[in-house]
Design a protein around this nucleic acid. Structure first.
Lengths: 136, 136
DNA sequence: TATTGTTATACTCTATAACTATA
DNA sequence: TATAGTTATAGAGTATAACAATA
């Protein structure tokens, strides 16, 4: 049965995002990672001495929900929590974290390239600018 | 802090979809509706004697997860479940369901128009085609 | 006084397994 | 034999409230 809601931009946005997320999650699951783990890993790699609260503000994850993510990554030996002062902790990658980052980047770059490739050429350059207009 | 992942199409897709969904859910909450309720309501209006399984296949909701949605809508007096044969049930709108549909459509049409309006004119016509390429 | 990290908790959405009855 | 509807349950993401300690 065809979908009578498919023409609605918001509905199509949700369906496309859900399909994309499921596919990306499946690829990350192959190396035991979740999407949130991967985004934290990539962000920490780009920001020296970033705190959990700062990560949460950038990725739109409440700091209370950062705790289980960082606990899981610390338990996996991917990150350390180092005191910056008496209150804040710097999240830094361990050697294992840097190795894992290499894997995550390979998966992500591959995935993003394939995603863009699926968009017909005449629409491709308009995609990210349109999304940014809705979000940033 | 600026977001070093913002340039990634998949990441931007997720962030835009999340922002859009939160805004749409907030508007529907004003009339006591959830996003899934609203999409079911609009689909049922377009398809005569549709079953729960068919709704699930179109909207990508497993039939097991259709049960609480339809229970909630039935308890709210928005739908009836009428036997089609000994096995299947037709989901049909009640009078209250038709009234609620009018409200939902007003909210949805307003929301979708505002969403499109936020996209710069030169990107607008490319948006839904690009999303369809990723999903359908 | 605002912020950081944390615990506890609840709600929504989604996923799997299993069962009954009917096409 | 495949499908419809359902129950029970578990996982994952997300939300609020509250607290101690520090800037």
């Amino acid at each position: 049965m065809d979908d009578p809601l498919a023409h609605l931009p918001g509905y199509a946005l949700r369906r496309a995002a859900n399909a994309m997320m499921a596919a990306f999650a499946a690829r990350l699951a192959a190396i035991g990672m979740r999407v949130s783990d991967a985004s934290v890993l990539m962000l920490v790699a780009e920001r020296k001495n970033v705190t959990a609260s700062q990560i949460g503000r950038v990725l739109d994850i409440q700091r209370t929900n950062m705790v289980p993510i960082l606990n899981r990554m610390e338990a996996a030996g991917l990150i350390d929590r180092l005191p910056l002062d008496g209150k804040s902790l710097a999240i830094v990658l361990t050697t294992a974290g840097i190795d894992r980052l290499t894997q995550v980047r390979a998966i992500a770059e591959n995935f993003e390239a394939e995603l863009l490739d699926r968009i017909p050429a005449e629409h491709r350059a308009h995609f990210v600018p349109a999304l940014h207009a809705l979000w940033r």
